[in-house]
Design a protein around this nucleic acid. Structure first.
Lengths: 272, 272
DNA sequence: TTGCTCCTCACGTCACGTGAGGTGGC
DNA sequence: TTGCTCCTCACGTCACGTGAGGTGGC
């Protein structure tokens, strides 16, 4: 018979853990002295301890190990758990690999001369959102092309909202895939939550679908927005995603007069 | 100003976590109502939240993120943390890869017809151990070769221990690298702990060095020991280690008469 | 008025490590 | 007798999730 200290030295394990395994019924000492509660382990228990530690090294939970130690051998049970473990490890490896890609993309971005603020990019599922929107066609992207169109579309929507007595939520724009000639379908409007608004032939009610996006928040005027788009697209590539559609812009804070206070969120649809 | 619920919906985060980040000083709401303790977040805080979440996605701790959010930009600080993180992820990937190798080795062993008990193999550093040993040369491995030699060596050591009035600890054998003609240097003896024993020209005091080993516990007679060695060597290969010396055997329980009760530990030196 | 949201406080997670404070064995 | 070992009890870890029980706002 071995004391807990001697037994612990045989397996690479601490006495504290042997007491814990006793407490949770994983590995009970062969004998416990009734007067002083000293634990005694039989040498034959070394085989069980070894088995326990080997299974633990594979990353099984103590609960799983208990099942394997208490059941009769049951190779099917063990096989099932090992396959599950294999799948878990493979998933972990994939996730950590993707994370490593993102970390390295950040390091590269820091070392590049552009010093782009790419550390604010987050992936998420969009919130379901109902908007009231007007639609038009712009000759291309860029403030020069889009600005005049927004000036036309936004008042149309606001007029409709006022007529319906609805309060506008966040201002939203979204873009269709550009045509061969470079022209772009542009949608602009406001979130309305669950307020009842009736559409017209020029102003429609649209439920924006829930999609996975890479999202970045831009503060200040829209002049520098093209560099933000570039950084976002590069990040998507570096992080192992691919672009899966065209962007949405949410104007969380919008001041015509003082664009320095503006807070704009760019959402780019992504997929693996 | 946004309520905690609205703000939480913008970033993919729960209100509970926003309260937690407030509590630990990571992200304080712009305003807290003094009467009802309601938190209000400014839209401009969305940029900070995004940054926080992006850094969290890289696996930084909240403590590290706090430093990065509170300090002025300090790109060196960020660079240092990202490099540390990269190193951590690379280590994790290596460890998980090795674990996957062990899991797959177990699965293969279960599917093989041999049904070897390889799930008891554990790697560890040996305990420092002082032994009293006698040395001889066997014509090769295997019980036929080793048995007669042990019969000669062990009594020599016991005689010495008795003369010194020392109590023997666990019985130990260890082997040298076989010579070209297949003969093997064999050492057999007993652990003595810190008891003072003086050596002779035939019986020496040796401190077995602390080494990394793959260890397996075998119960029963030594007849089946060759299959155990085979399984151990295959496991070492499958797990990405290599054999780094020749084995030690610890006879934790030794009954001449009833070998079914024997408990033997095989330790094989390994290295990466 | 009625859900909905917000608040604080507190416990659980998982596999341990690290004490404090006390007793037993050579 | 003196270290050494053993005992129980309890707290801390890390980033949360999930309640309980109560209040405030539209």
């Amino acid at each position: 018979m071995l004391t807990i200290g001697d037994f612990a030295r045989l397996g690479p394990i601490s006495p504290r853990m042997l007491r814990h395994y006793d407490e949770i019924g994983l590995l009970r000492p062969d004998r416990v002295d009734p007067t002083n509660a000293y634990r005694s382990y039989g040498v034959a228990q070394l085989a069980t301890l070894h088995r326990l530690l080997a299974l633990r090294d594979l990353g099984l939970t103590l609960e799983q190990i208990r099942e394997l130690l208490s059941d009769d051998p049951s190779p099917d049970h063990l096989r099932g758990m090992l396959r599950l473990r294999r799948a878990q490890i493979e998933r972990t490896l994939g996730e950590e690999q993707a994370r490593l890609g993102r970390v390295e993309a950040h390091i590269r971005a820091l070392e590049g001369s552009t010093a782009m603020q790419i550390q604010d990019i987050v992936t998420k599922a969009t919130q379901p959102m109902r908007i009231v929107e007007a639609t038009g066609t712009a000759p291309g992207f860029g403030s020069d092309n889009l600005g005049p169109l927004f000036m036309r579309l936004v008042p149309e929507v606001i007029t409709r909202l006022e007529a319906a007595g609805a309060r506008p939520g966040v201002m939203v724009a979204w873009y269709e895939e550009p045509a061969d000639d470079g022209t772009v379908g542009v949608h602009a409007g406001f979130a309305i939550g669950d307020q009842a608004v009736v559409g017209t032939d020029r102003v429609r009610i649209v439920d924006l679908p829930v999609i996975e996006v890479a999202s970045v928040v831009h503060r200040g005027s829209m002049d520098g927005i093209e560099a933000v788009y570039e950084a976002l697209l590069r990040w998507i590539e570096d992080s192992g995603y691919r672009q899966a559609g065209f962007s949405r812009e949410l104007y969380h804070e919008w001041h015509e007069e003082d664009s320095g206070l503006n807070v704009t969120e760019i959402q780019m649809p992504i997929a693996r």
